[in-house]
């Protein structure tokens, strides 16, 4: 029963982690936009400051990206192979890799437009995982507890 309950909790936690990744991604977009729109701060300085203070899965992804930036990435797939996170779905990993690959590649006006677009995508993902956490998270937890009880009764 304990194992089933823990499985239910792990599923719930994965929804929470995904939600927090996209919450942090939205916050990063806001921070990045603020830094470049008034100060044109170079990307490496922004990432250095962000990685110093940031915690969590998204910050871990950013640290991996920052570490590989000096070598350079030819395309989003190369970024993906460096920053892939096991807690995220493939499509989410790809969105984040594309976002990272696009950073710093255009002039100020287009960079801000791009960031706004990605911020909207991240907001939508965040809302989806928030709703999954509230609806499915509890459901999976209860379902696995029930499954554990059923198995226990069957065994007894």
């Amino acid at each position: 029963m304990t194992a089933a309950a823990l499985t239910g909790l792990a599923i719930k936690k994965s929804f929470r982690t995904r939600m927090s990744v996209f919450t942090d991604a939205c916050d990063f977009c806001a921070y990045y936009k603020r830094e470049i729109s008034s100060l044109k701060t170079p990307l490496d300085e922004i990432l250095r400051a962000y990685c110093k203070e940031g915690k969590g899965v998204f910050s871990g992804i950013m640290k991996k990206y920052y570490a590989g930036m000096s070598v350079g990435f030819c395309n989003a797939e190369e970024v993906l192979s460096d920053v892939r996170s096991n807690v995220l779905r493939d499509e989410d990993n790809l969105i984040i890799a594309s976002f990272l690959f696009a950073l710093g590649k255009s002039d100020l006006e287009n960079e801000i437009t791009n960031i706004k677009r990605y911020q909207d995508v991240f907001e939508e993902k965040k809302r989806k995982y928030e709703s999954d956490l509230n609806k499915k998270g509890d459901m999976y937890y209860k379902l696995f507890v029930l499954l554990g009880i059923t198995l226990m009764i069957l065994v007894v």
Binding site: I36, K40, P42, L43, E45, S70, G104, L108, E111
Partner: peptide
């Protein structure tokens, strides 16, 4: 081309917007 891209990347802090 990679050598030139490397120098430009380093010099711009990997951000075209800061040096356009």
């Amino acid at each position: 081309g990679g050598d030139v891209a490397h120098v430009l990347g380093r010099a711009s802090g990997y951000s075209l917007y800061s040096v356009t």
